[in-house]
Design a protein around this nucleic acid. Structure first.
Length: 398
RNA sequence: GGGGAGAUGCCCGAGUGGCCAAUGGGAACAGACUGUAAAUCUGUCAGCGAAAGCUUUCGCAGGUUCGAAUCCUGCUCUCCCCA
């Protein structure tokens, strides 16, 4: 593969490649690049948003390079201030370890384990003495740290910045020094931190890493960045049907962007699909199938499409709704209080919320809208309960 | 170290003794319309209860009062100005 072809792969779905010339040099010299990605173990699920940078890492692996994952078990206890207008809550060591375990398994759905090395940054950051920390701090200035726009903004808005937060970029930069990374991949919001890595590596007399920045994937709401705390996410472990359905719910404007960041479909083809006179819905169906195929299989993608058309486009009952047993304690003298059932099954936030849903006409039994709260047990069993647009369960007697 | 301001529901933000489970906006959820898109209209939005109603909420802990988000005391946290 020529250098240009390799660069085309590297550049897809990035906003900026800083130090690209260094990457080219090192590839020409035949080096196996050490490509760093910091992993913040604050979540249990790998979302499509997270997958963007993981897939970029995989691109490098495909070109023969080594992925260096830094598990931020130490830094997670500080909390990355990136994009946050508030001080993050600090995680306990147990939380971190639990998340790490859940998440590393999911990484290998994307990454090649043969070409992946995992580091824990507590191994070096946790060993530093206070004197080491002070020496580190002496290599950076307050003014430079405060250049960072989160900090600038917070200062301007009279919001607090805790001292430990300004150390976060330094910690992350030190990771790069420690593992001698050639390239660091990061989301756009990591630019500042990644650049600190470059500076720090030079300070320590090492060649500076290049930085590859990927845009942040917008969530299914089409507004905010995809994140687990906002609930606008698709997890790579979601079922094919969920993945498909959630993808179909994204606003039209972000379809192209999702193609670029979440699939390998050539951009020329994407432009074609989104051209004049084309129905964006068709592009979205293709997108949804591509995504399902990537994390499940082509067959699953086809099945998910069929399910989607049956259930939502034609509004037919799903055949394979999950079966759920009606808890016996909810049955009193043969009667069941439906709000309590819906609340109890977690289909609504609370019994009160379930009641509101029934009143709003959002609840149906075998396709028939329900208006009553109390029902005979016999009138419920064997029926498909629908709550809202896309929650279905089949009720079974306990 | 000195002086000043402030802490209200997911967020912003009204409310200064009873009419406050707390105005308004945003977010979210649901219904109609759709393409599980957008826009629009409507409804809901502390918990429990079929309901009457009950319980818990206005930084934290006490107190005054028949009655407190509102008054008093102490505490915690944050911001601003000066050093």
């Amino acid at each position: 593969m020529t250098i240009d072809e390799q660069l085309k792969i590297i550049r897809r779905g990035t906003t900026e490649v800083i130090g690209e010339a260094d990457i080219v040099d090192r590839i020409k010299k035949g080096q196996t690049l050490r490509v760093k990605l910091g992993v913040d173990p604050t979540a249990k699920d790998v979302t499509l948003g997270w997958a963007v940078v993981l897939r970029k890492l995989r691109d490098f692996q495909k070109l023969g390079h080594t992925a260096c994952l830094i598990i931020g078990d130490f830094t997670a206890q500080i909390g990355d201030p990136s994009g946050k207008s508030k001080t993050r809550k600090q995680l306990t060591r147990e939380d971190v370890l639990e998340n790490v375990e859940a998440v590393t398994k999911q990484f290998y759905r994307i990454l090649d384990p043969e070409k992946t090395v995992i580091y824990f940054n507590a191994d070096w950051l946790g060993m530093m003495s206070f004197q080491d920390v002070i020496m580190l701090c002496s290599r950076y200035t307050v003014a430079r740290i405060l250049e960072r726009d989160d900090f600038t903004k917070r200062l301007a808005e009279n919001r607090p910045i805790a001292m430990h937060e300004i150390l976060y970029p330094l910690c992350q930069g030190l990771d790069s020094v420690e593992i001698d990374s050639d390239v660091e991949i990061g989301g756009n919001d990591q630019k500042f931190n990644n650049l600190v890595g470059r500076t720090l590596m030079e300070q320590y007399g090492k060649p500076a890493q290049a930085v590859v920045l990927c845009p942040l994937l917008v969530g299914t709401d089409g507004k905010e960045k995809m994140s687990q705390s906002l609930g606008n996410y698709i997890s790579i472990t979601d079922t094919p049907n969920d993945m498909f359905g959630k993808t179909m719910s994204i606003p039209d404007e972000i379809i192209g962007n999702w193609f670029e960041l979440c699939t390998d479909v050539p951009m020329e083809e994407v432009a074609e699909m989104l051209g004049e006179g084309k129905n964006p819905r068709d592009a979205k169906v293709r997108l949804a199938k591509e995504i399902v195929a990537l994390y499940h299989s082509v067959e699953d993608a086809d099945a998910a499409e069929r399910y989607f058309i049956e259930t939502f486009s034609k509004k037919v009952q799903p055949v394979d709704a999950e079966e759920v047993v009606i808890p016996s304690e909810l049955v009193v003298e043969g009667m069941v209080n439906l709000p309590a059932l819906i609340g109890g099954l977690g289909l609504a936030k609370s019994n009160g919320a379930a009641k509101d849903l029934i009143t709003a006409g959002a609840v149906a039994l075998d396709g028939e809208k329900v208006t009553e709260f109390r029902h005979e047990l016999s009138a419920l069993t064997g029926k498909v309960l629908k709550v809202g647009k896309h929650k279905f369960v089949k009720l079974i007697e306990g």
